[in-house]
């Protein structure tokens, strides 16, 4: 590939619009040509800048309230009483946002839409006394993963995993993985708890398009499944900025890319993805089983040097009325909900 051709295709490459084979050719050229590699970095940076610059514009609260009023008026609902159990109109809308996904299991709004798993149906307030906060629509938006991360994760699965489909030697993450991420040295052992029906074929660190992954390659019958762990850097987030809270409250973030299904989880510093060619719902269910122990482990590792926690009050749809929220905004349930999060909150005197 010539430099001129590389530069012509570069923007489409960064958009994830090129075929996988062309991606490979682009990467090979970039590896050899530092001028083109530099241009790739500059254009990527420009895209991030442009996204951040444009993302500062938001519909004002006043305009949003006018819009909602207009919708109600158009439906002839503006004089009606609130439905039972409603609190304020705004809170009801927020509750609806979390209600939607698991009532319509087949509904996947768009490749990059956020979904909320059934275990995470929360209508949440936290904070002490009168100081209530909520996970705002802005926060939810700030947690959206970027198209490039999705494309890179899918690309890594597609180009790397097939090499190991028939591997028979026992697979183990090498010690050298610690040079990339110390927490991933035991990734294969941690993931084993959720990988009962899978066969581990490979464990290594690999690259795809400037992004490094810790990569576990599994087979399940004829299907290839990848578990990937990567940095939660600004390129991984659609806004170009890493929010100061993780995305765990959102449950499985689901995507499709080029006939692959992806399920993703965010901790404070990392993103865990499960990629396969299974149907989307099946991949999501597998992702929850496979990724859960890994996510919990990474959270514990991150929490060892992490912020203090405080107890707030919250209202969960299941009727539990206490949650713990740490300063990173990660929500931990208390008392009795089975799931991947345990209760380990300590009261902090404010």
């Amino acid at each position: 590939m010539e430099c001129q051709n590389f530069k012509e295709l570069l923007d489409s490459y960064l958009c994830g619009e090129l075929a996988v084979e062309t991606n490979h050719t682009m990467l090979c050229h970039a590896e050899r040509c530092c001028s083109c590699r530099s241009e790739m970095g500059a254009r990527r940076s420009l895209r991030s800048s442009l996204r951040r610059a444009c993302s500062k514009e938001e519909l004002s609260d006043r305009a949003m309230e006018n819009l909602r009023a207009r919708l109600r008026s158009d439906s002839g609902l503006d004089d009606g009483p609130a439905a039972p159990g409603d609190e304020t109109g705004r809170r009801n809308w927020f509750a609806g946002l979390f209600k939607m996904r698991f009532l319509t299991p087949a509904a996947i709004v768009a490749a990059l839409a956020l979904t909320v798993g059934a275990a995470w149906s929360l209508s949440l307030l936290w904070g002490g006394d009168d100081d209530h906060q909520r996970l705002s629509s802005q926060q939810i938006k700030a947690l959206e993963l970027s198209a490039s991360l999705v494309a890179e994760s899918a690309g890594d699965h597609r180009t790397c995993a097939p090499y190991f489909v028939n591997a028979t030697e026992p697979a183990e993450m090498p010690e050298s993985a610690g040079e990339y991420d110390r927490a991933c040295v035991r990734l294969d052992k941690i993931a084993a708890q959720g990988a009962k029906e899978l066969q581990l074929r490979a464990a290594h660190i690999c690259d795809f398009s400037d992004r490094k992954f810790a990569h576990l390659v599994y087979t399940r019958g004829a299907s290839l499944v990848s578990l990937l762990v990567t940095d939660r850097d600004c390129r991984a987030l659609k806004s170009g900025e890493v929010p100061p809270y993780s995305g765990l409250a959102l449950g499985t973030q689901r995507f499709t890319h080029d006939h692959l299904a992806l399920g993703a989880y965010q901790t404070s510093k990392r993103i865990v993805l499960v990629v396969s060619d299974l149907p989307v719902d099946e991949n999501a269910a597998l992702a929850e089983r496979l990724a859960s122990p890994v996510v919990e482990y990474l959270r514990n590792v991150e929490a060892e040097t992490g912020p203090k926690e405080r107890i707030g009050t919250g209202r969960l749809r299941e009727g539990i009325d206490r949650v713990a929220v740490n300063d990173a905004g990660e929500i931990m349930k208390i008392d009795g909900i089975d799931g991947i999060f345990r209760d380990f909150a300590r009261r902090i005197d404010h």
């Binding site: 444009c54 993302s55 514009e57 938001e58 519909l59 949003m64 819009l67 909602r68 919708l71 109600r72 439906s75 002839g76 609902l77 009606g80 439905a83 009801n92 809308w93 609806g96 946002l97 209600k99 939607m100 709004v109 629509s137 939810i140 938006k141």
Partner: peptide
């Protein structure tokens, strides 16, 4: 009836209003 209509509107709001800022940026 009103209850069904409200429920449908809530679903619409939950699904669609989340894109309002993205649409607004383009509208600008």
């Amino acid at each position: 009836d009103q209850k069904d209509k409200l429920q449908r509107l809530e679903i619409f709001e939950a699904e669609a209003l989340g894109f309002s800022s993205q649409l607004f940026r383009v509208a600008l």
